[in-house]
Design a binder for these strands. Structure first.
Lengths: 149, 149
DNA sequence: CAAATTTATATCGTTCACGATGCAAAAGTA
DNA sequence: TACTTTTGCATCGTGAACGATATAAATTTG
């Protein structure tokens, strides 16, 4: 079969792409009540670990371009979740910090990871098997960071 | 640590999301010369397997909503890759078929899967390890299809 | 120190992704 | 057959992603 490789079933990327979209979809029931999207949730995760970071650091941790993160942060500022202030030493930088609302949302989001785990277990079964993918995904991601340069 | 679970490193979804984006990025060098995007490439994969399918079938195979696929197909029609004709038995349907250009692109795309494998091997190492994720991803995807209903 | 380069962020245009809604055709029902 | 419901697709609005480009500040270089 000359075109065997072009069959959809043989495509790893298609599976990653689909799994990522569906997983994001599984966050919807928990993020909608908070009024945030999944990428916004990721930004909050970063800021909850360490508040007051420049745009670049956030983008780097999320493996996103700043031209994706900037509008994301602007929407989050509009929603009252973060503040963006000019950097003191380097005035080119925009330091992103959590507002009271952003800080308080951490408490409301506390149980989201376990809720998601429960949802996945319910319909899929094995958390162990899924967890085994993590080191492989990390290697793949590190390799692809090189490829995409 | 009360908020341990909220650390980014513990998030499976973030890895899927990042791996999917970076893998799509790895297709760029091969899809750009053909003038198509990754989702458009997926549509072509589906049509190369079987030509002349209604919008619904394509959307279902790609696990996408029709309101994502319809504009995608409209752009592909504009680019001269597919034709969209009214269904004969069911006139609500739009049957999507490949144009000459769409058919011929299969030949040009023939080596993309092996090129991508090569790229991944180069910077990551083990195709075996990555291939092992496939059955797990399939189970995850099937489970999430249930969850997201 | 002045000029060239790099860096941090922002803006713009295009393409997804998807919830909500609309609409006409088909199918089911009274 | 008339009415209701379902189905297949399209449209609209919003929020990502990201390449290309812009701009100002910092850094490097001559």
């Amino acid at each position: 079969m000359e075109y065997e490789q072009l069959k959809l079933d043989n495509q790893l990327c298609f599976r990653l792409y689909t799994a990522a979209r569906l997983t994001m979809g599984a966050y919807h029931p928990y993020l909608d009540p908070l009024g945030i999207t999944y990428p916004q949730y990721l930004v909050l995760l970063v800021l909850w670990e360490q508040d007051k970071q420049p745009v670049n650091d956030i983008a780097h941790k999320l493996v996103l371009e700043t031209n994706t993160v900037t509008p994301l942060l602007q929407r989050m500022e509009k929603a009252g979740l973060v503040k963006r202030t000019k950097g003191k030493e380097d005035t080119r930088q925009r330091i992103v910090s959590l507002t009271k609302k952003g800080i308080e949302m951490r408490e409301q989001a506390k149980h989201i990871p376990e809720c998601l785990s429960a949802d996945i277990i319910k319909n899929e079964g094995s958390v162990e098997e899924i967890s085994q993918m993590i080191p492989t995904l990390d290697k793949l991601i590190e390799g692809l960071k090189q490829t995409n340069n």
